[in-house]
């Protein structure tokens, strides 16, 4: 080996590996600041306006061709239902949106909260899906291809809002079911989702996400007495397409307020960023170590052979 010493080779290798690791880390931080697609649409949900009529549930059922509910949509007794130690209703394979009633302390009227997929800017469900069934469309919707879904339920665990539901009723082909922002039938044609359109109170305002954020803060500024000074979903888990204004503290009306502002993927991105580096560099690096470690032995061995050869030549 001429021109490059063992020490130099090792130094170069380590410096190279370090630089690769650093550059990967920088990339990971940069992508965490993504703010979704620039022209993404969204929905601003003003919970102070909701009267709990459940029209949105009915409209969703019709639009998505969901099976008949157990109770009529005008049946208000459904708000009294609780499951598993007081848990309110949640979305399932037959209902992609549900409205729940809360009675926070100090508020005169009950507060109704509509639940559906919040369509995250950086969806954890999408990240967790190993068959790539999920897509975040440029319009803002988080949709999924039921033909690709293998029913592993990773997304149900990954979702910070407990939204994806599972078709447990299907014995042969159970898959994930969730709100798709009416993407197929409406959003991609520039129309608002069915629940937004039917709402008699305009609880939901459909528009460009960026403008909705401005409108939301304007509402808080104009009527500070009506709203909690926070727009839920503006920053939570990296931002969501559906955002909420509330007349009562969010934690009292069923929202998780312990959510980080970083997208869920940031929890694992740095670690996962090192995996390709390990796969690409370690084999070469350790092969190098191995070759260097055994080189001296080879030279000695080779030297012996050479000597033997000379001896034989002399003898002859």
């Amino acid at each position: 080996m001429s021109g490059i010493s063992r020490r130099k080779f090792l130094t170069c290798t380590l410096v190279g590996a370090g630089a690769t690791a650093l550059s990967l880390k920088t990339d990971a931080f940069a992508s965490a600041k993504l703010e979704g697609y620039p022209d993404s649409m969204g929905v601003l949900v003003d919970l102070g306006r909701c009267v709990g009529c459940r029209s949105c549930e009915a409209a969703c059922n019709r639009e998505q061709n969901l099976p008949a509910p157990a109770q009529s949509f005008e049946d208000q007794s459904i708000f009294d239902q609780t499951f598993h130690n007081g848990q309110k209703r949640r979305t399932d394979e037959n209902a992609y949106t549900v409205v729940n009633r809360y009675e926070p302390e100090g508020t005169e009227n009950p507060v109704y909260r509509k639940v559906q997929c919040n369509h995250c800017n950086e969806p954890a469900c999408l990240t967790s899906c190993f068959v790539n069934a999920y897509t975040k469309t440029s319009e803002g919707a988080v949709i999924y291809n039921p033909n690709i879904c293998v029913g592993c339920r990773n997304c149900m665990i990954a979702c910070p809002f407990n939204v994806p539901a599972y078709s447990y009723s299907s014995a042969t082909n159970p898959i994930i079911k969730k709100c798709i922002f009416c993407y197929d039938t409406r959003l991609k044609n520039g129309q608002p989702p069915a629940c937004v359109e039917i709402c008699p109170q305009q609880v939901m305002t459909f528009g460009h996400r960026k403008e909705l954020i401005e409108i939301a803060h304007e509402r808080i500024k104009t009527h500070p007495d009506r709203y909690i000074d926070h727009l839920y979903g503006e920053d939570e888990v990296g931002g969501t397409s559906w955002m909420y204004l509330a007349p009562a503290p969010f934690e009292e009306i069923g929202f998780d307020t312990t959510m980080n502002n970083e997208p869920i993927i940031s929890n694992v991105k740095d670690f996962l960023g090192t995996v390709p580096m390990v796969l690409a560099i370690w084999p070469a690096l350790f092969t190098g170590f191995h070759l260097l470690a055994t080189r001296k032995h080879d030279i000695e061995h080779h030297g012996d052979d050479h000597q033997k050869h000379k001896d034989e030549e002399k003898k002859s």
């Binding site: 157990a70 109770q71 009529s72 949509f73």
Partner: peptide, 21 residues
């Protein structure tokens, strides 16, 4: 009525029993 599953479209008790809850 069909939209709200009300009137003559109100789910019958048997349908309710077959529901997911």
């Amino acid at each position: 009525d069909a939209l709200f599953r009300a009137g003559k479209h109100t789910p019958t008790p048997t349908e309710k029993a077959a529901g997911h809850h």
